[in-house]
């Protein structure tokens, strides 16, 4: 994609927003594999304002988790090639030294993992795991760190938090474990939270409680967040803005209301159609015909074209750029050539 056309900002950001906390430009991630390079992320750009929640949605394999992990520099260094720039809180994440990187990880940006039963160490207590992170980032005594760990557990409203400090992950329910994971992430008061499908491992009723808690704490602390989900209902509920990903690219982005009310990209429309059924809440992305392209052999032109009902001959020629279109931004030759039926008020 063409950086100059965007004049230094990601498209879809034409609306004036407060100072940007995070700014990602032309991020691309390739993994070495025996089948050749896997192009997991291909030129992703977005901005995130302080206190803003961005939702990344898309089918599984579209590069959402890889994007988040790149933001934390968590991808295996030896087999991964990352290009582009990532600025968070004024710091260039791509060029952080080891020491600064360890300050950044957990301190500036914290991650909430999909499955806390895997992401927590099974042989350390919850209290130990939160306290050691606190001591890594703040110069406090052991007892002070433990006191703060307790505060963090109380903040996420874990019942009998004091006893829970000494519990091991396997002694807690899935919902409690995810609350503990959230406490761990928020204990260092990060400026950016990366949450990778934080509730998919939980029961439906617990999912909503945990989501609402996360949303509440995020607003209370004024933290920004990037929220990966393939639940459009969740996205509508908690995100300010949405970026729809397909084959490692953002194909449509804008405010949550815009994108979900009047999707322009055929992929977004297909996602909506396959899940809408009257209500969007709780529906998963499913039943979309065909499968995503092989990321080791991306086709020329639009990656969605093989599954697209509106594909035309020109779609094979060039990768569509993400361009402003009727209030948000879309990367589709066909949509860009059509006048939107209804102008969406800004």
């Amino acid at each position: 994609m063409n950086g100059t056309a965007m004049n230094g900002t990601a498209v879809g950001d034409d609306v004036k927003r407060p100072a940007m906390l995070a700014s990602v430009r032309e991020l691309s991630v390739r993994f070495a594999s025996p089948q050749g390079a896997v192009h997991a992320v291909n030129g992703v750009s977005f901005d995130l304002a302080a206190g803003e929640v961005l939702g990344l949605i898309g089918e599984s394999g579209s590069g959402k988790s890889v994007t988040l992990r790149a933001l934390m520099r968590l991808l295996p260094e030896s087999r991964t090639r990352i290009d582009g720039s990532i600025i968070v809180g004024g710091r260039n994440v791509m060029s952080l030294s080891r020491g600064l990187l360890n300050e950044y990880r957990g301190g500036t940006t914290a991650m909430i993992f999909q499955d806390p039963s895997l992401a927590l160490d099974p042989v350390y207590t919850i209290g130990q795991q939160i306290a050691e992170a606190i001591r890594q980032h703040l110069d406090v005594s052991r007892s002070e760190a433990r006191a703060r760990a307790l505060e963090a557990l109380e903040m996420v409203r874990i019942p009998s938090a004091r006893e829970r400090l000494d519990s091991y992950p396997h002694e807690m329910s899935g919902g409690m474990r995810q609350r503990a994971m959230i406490a761990l992430a928020l204990a260092m008061k990060p400026r950016l939270i990366l949450a990778d499908e934080p509730t998919t491992a939980l029961d439906a009723t617990v999912q909503i409680q945990v989501l609402l808690l996360l949303r509440e704490l995020q607003q209370q602390m004024g933290t920004s967040a990037i929220f990966v989900t393939h639940d459009l209902g969740v996205a509508a509920e908690i995100c300010d803005r949405i970026a729809v990903m397909y084959a490692g690219r953002i194909v449509e982005t804008g405010t949550a209301t815009e994108v979900l009310r009047s999707p322009r990209h055929p992929y977004t429309q297909a996602l909506m159609a396959s899940t809408i059924h009257g209500s969007m809440r709780g529906q998963r992305i499913e039943g979309l015909a065909g499968s995503p392209p092989d990321l080791a052999r991306l086709p020329a032109g639009c990656a969605f074209r093989a599954r697209c009902t509106r594909a035309q001959a020109g779609c094979a020629d060039a990768v569509p750029e993400l361009l402003p279109h009727a209030g948000h931004a879309v990367a589709c030759h066909v949509a860009q050539a059509t006048q939107p039926l209804r102008a969406v008020p800004a």
Binding site: F113, Q136, A185
Partner: peptide, 17 residues
Amino acid sequence: KSEFVTGLVAKGMGHAT
């Protein structure tokens, strides 16, 4: 390779920890 090691790295822990 396990996820909890990624979890430790993600909260900023050094090699020794």
